[in-house]
Amino acid sequence: MSVPGERPHPVPTPLTEPYWASCRAGVLSLQRCASCRRYVHFPEERCPFCGAGSPAYEPVSGRGRVVTHTTVHRPFVPGFADLAPYTVAWVELEEQPGLRAFGGLLGHPPGADAVGMPVEVVFTELPGFGPIPDFRPRREGER
Rank of each mutant, 00 (worst) to 15 (best):
G26A: 04
V27I: 12
G79I: 04
C47G: 01
P110C: 09
P12R: 08
G104C: 01
P48T: 07
G26V: 00
S54Q: 11
A89P: 10
F76A: 10
G104D: 13
D82H: 15
E125V: 09
M117E: 11
L93M: 15
G26C: 02
R37Y: 04
W20C: 02
G111S: 08
F123Y: 10
S61M: 12
T70N: 02
A112F: 05
H41W: 15
L105P: 12
C36E: 14
D82I: 01
H41K: 09
V121Y: 08
Y57G: 00
H41F: 15
V60L: 14
V60I: 15
A81W: 10
R138M: 14
A89W: 10
S22A: 14
S61G: 14
C36K: 13
F129A: 13
P43S: 03
L93Q: 07
E140G: 02
Y57P: 01
D113I: 00
T70R: 03
G64F: 08
V27N: 08
L126I: 03
G98A: 09
T71L: 03
E94R: 06
E17D: 09
G98P: 09
L30E: 02
R136E: 07
T16V: 05
P118F: 11
P4D: 07
S54D: 13
L93G: 05
D113R: 12
H9P: 02
Q96Y: 09
G51P: 11
H9V: 13
H108N: 08
P133H: 06
H73F: 09
H108A: 06
D113V: 01
E120W: 05
G111Q: 14
T71S: 03
P85E: 13
V27R: 14
V77M: 14
P75W: 07
V27C: 05
P18E: 12
V40G: 00
P109W: 07
G51S: 10
L105N: 07
P97V: 04
R74T: 15
F102A: 01
L106I: 12
A89M: 11
P78S: 09
G141I: 02
L28Y: 08
M117I: 07
A89G: 05
T16N: 03
G103Y: 13
A112M: 07
T70H: 01
H69N: 03
R24Y: 02
S22F: 09
P109Y: 11
Y86I: 03
E142H: 10
G62E: 08
P48H: 13
F42P: 13
M1E: 10
R38C: 03
T16A: 02
G53L: 15
P18I: 14
Y19N: 01
V91N: 06
E142R: 03
M117T: 10
P8C: 07
D134L: 01
A89Q: 11
H108L: 09
L83E: 15
A25W: 11
P78Q: 08
S35W: 03
F123P: 06
